[in-house]
Lab assay of single mutants.
Amino acid sequence: AKPPKTVTVKVEVTNADGETQTRTVTLTNLPKDLKPGDTVTLPETGQTARIVEITP
């Protein structure tokens, strides 16, 4: 079996106070056609994050 493909992405997350924070997260099994501006759900927090940058 192939190991899951991990991708490092820079995302913007809005916290409970309405502040936008930029975080770098490593995600696995992202859709192939994901692009900056799309939103993903962070598995560890369940927060919705907007992708700023994808590092191949």
Rank of each mutant, 00 (worst) to 15 (best):
P4E: 10
D38K: 02
T26G: 03
L27M: 09
L34A: 14
R50C: 05
V40A: 01
K10N: 04
V25A: 03
A49V: 13
V40M: 10
R50Q: 09
T6L: 10
P36A: 08
T26M: 10
E53K: 05
T39S: 09
P3M: 02
D17R: 11
V52F: 02
A1M: 13
V11I: 11
I54H: 01
P31Q: 13
P43D: 08
P31W: 14
R50T: 15
K10Q: 06
V25S: 01
L27Q: 01
L27G: 01
E12G: 02
V25H: 03
K2Y: 12
T24M: 12
V40C: 03
P56H: 14
I54T: 02
N29T: 06
T39N: 07
V7Y: 15
Q47N: 04
T8N: 06
T41V: 14
V25N: 00
R50Y: 14
V13A: 03
P43S: 06
P3D: 11
D33M: 06
P43A: 07
V9I: 11
R50L: 15
E44N: 08
P36T: 06
V40N: 00
V52W: 02
T24R: 05
T24G: 01
I54F: 08
T28G: 07
P3Y: 08
R50K: 14
L42I: 11
G18S: 02
K5G: 09
D33E: 11
R50I: 15
D33R: 06
V7N: 04
N15T: 12
L42A: 01
K5W: 14
R23S: 09
E19P: 02
Q21N: 08
T8V: 11
V7L: 11
D38F: 03
T55E: 13
P4F: 10
T45H: 03
Q47Y: 06
Q47V: 05
K35L: 05
L42M: 06
L30I: 13
R50A: 04
I51E: 00
P36G: 02
K35Q: 09
T24I: 15
P56F: 14
L30G: 09
G37A: 01
Q21H: 14
T41S: 06
V25D: 01
V13K: 01
T22L: 14
P43W: 08
L30C: 05
V7C: 06
K2G: 12
T8K: 08
T41F: 15
L27R: 01
A49F: 07
V25L: 13
V9M: 09
E12P: 00
K32F: 15
K32E: 14
A16I: 09
P43E: 07
G46I: 01
L30P: 15
V13Y: 15
P43G: 05
I54Y: 04
V7R: 04
P3K: 04
P31R: 12
V52Q: 03
G46N: 08
G37W: 02
T55K: 11
D38P: 00
E44C: 07
L30N: 06
T6A: 12
T6M: 12
L42P: 00
T39V: 13
T14I: 13
V13H: 03
I51M: 01
T55Y: 15
E19I: 13
T48L: 12
Q21L: 12
V13E: 02
V25R: 01
E53Q: 07
T55W: 15
A16M: 09
T55M: 15
G46D: 04
T22Y: 15
V7K: 04
T14W: 08
L30D: 05
G37P: 00
T14G: 03
D38Q: 04
K10I: 15
E44V: 09
T55D: 11
E53A: 09
K32Q: 11
A1D: 12
T48M: 10
T28D: 09
G18F: 02
L42D: 06
A49E: 01
A1I: 13
V11Y: 10
Q47A: 05
T8H: 07
V52H: 02
D17M: 11
V9S: 00
Q21G: 06
L42G: 01
V52K: 04
T14D: 05
E12R: 06
P31I: 13
K35T: 03
G46W: 03
V9P: 00
A49H: 03
T45I: 05
T20N: 05
P56L: 14
R23Y: 15
K5C: 09
D33A: 07
P4L: 13
V40E: 00
T39C: 10
A16T: 09
I51K: 00
G37L: 01
Q47D: 10
L30Y: 15
D17E: 11
G37F: 02
Q21A: 10
V7E: 03
L42Y: 02
L34E: 00
I51S: 00
T6K: 10
P3L: 05
K35A: 07
D38G: 03
I54R: 01
L27K: 01
V11C: 03
T45K: 02
N15M: 12
P31D: 14
P4H: 13
T48A: 10
V7F: 15
P31H: 14
A49Y: 07
K2M: 13
T45G: 06
L30W: 15
N15A: 08
E12T: 09
R50D: 02
P3T: 03
I54M: 06
Q47H: 05
K5M: 13
K32C: 08
V9Q: 00
N15G: 12
T24N: 07
V52I: 14
T48D: 09
P36L: 13
T41Y: 15
N29E: 07
T26P: 02
G18N: 03
T39D: 05
P56S: 13
P43M: 06
R23T: 10
V9H: 00
T20E: 04
V9L: 14
A16D: 10
T26D: 05
L34K: 04
T14Y: 09
K32S: 14
E53D: 06
T39Y: 15
D33V: 06
D33I: 06
K35S: 04
N29D: 12
A16W: 09
E44K: 07
V9T: 01
A1C: 10
V25Q: 02
D17F: 12
T8C: 06
D17H: 11
P43V: 07
L30T: 10
T14V: 13
E53S: 12
K32A: 15
D38Y: 03
A1P: 13
D38S: 04
V13P: 00
T26R: 08
P3H: 08
D33W: 13
P36N: 04
A16R: 08
D33F: 09
E53C: 06
N29H: 11
V7S: 06
T26F: 11
I54V: 08
D17S: 10
P43R: 06
V11W: 03
T28L: 10
T41D: 04
K2W: 14
P3I: 04
P36K: 07
G37Y: 02
P31E: 14
E12W: 08
A49K: 00
K10E: 03
E44H: 10
E12V: 11
K35R: 10
R50F: 11
E53N: 05
E44L: 10
T41P: 03
V25E: 03
G37V: 00
I51R: 00
V13I: 14
E53L: 05
E19F: 10
L34I: 12
P4A: 12
A16N: 08
D17L: 11
D33L: 07
E44S: 09
P31T: 14
V52M: 07
V40F: 14
L42S: 01
L27V: 05
K35Y: 06
L34P: 08
T45M: 03
T22R: 07
L30R: 04
T48C: 09
L42F: 05
K32P: 14
N29P: 03
T8P: 01
N29W: 10
Q21C: 09
P31G: 13
V11K: 00
T45A: 03
Q21M: 12
R23N: 04
D38I: 03
K35W: 04
L34T: 07
D38V: 03
A16F: 08
K32G: 13
P4R: 05
T20F: 07
V11R: 00
T48P: 12
P36I: 15
D33P: 08
T22F: 15
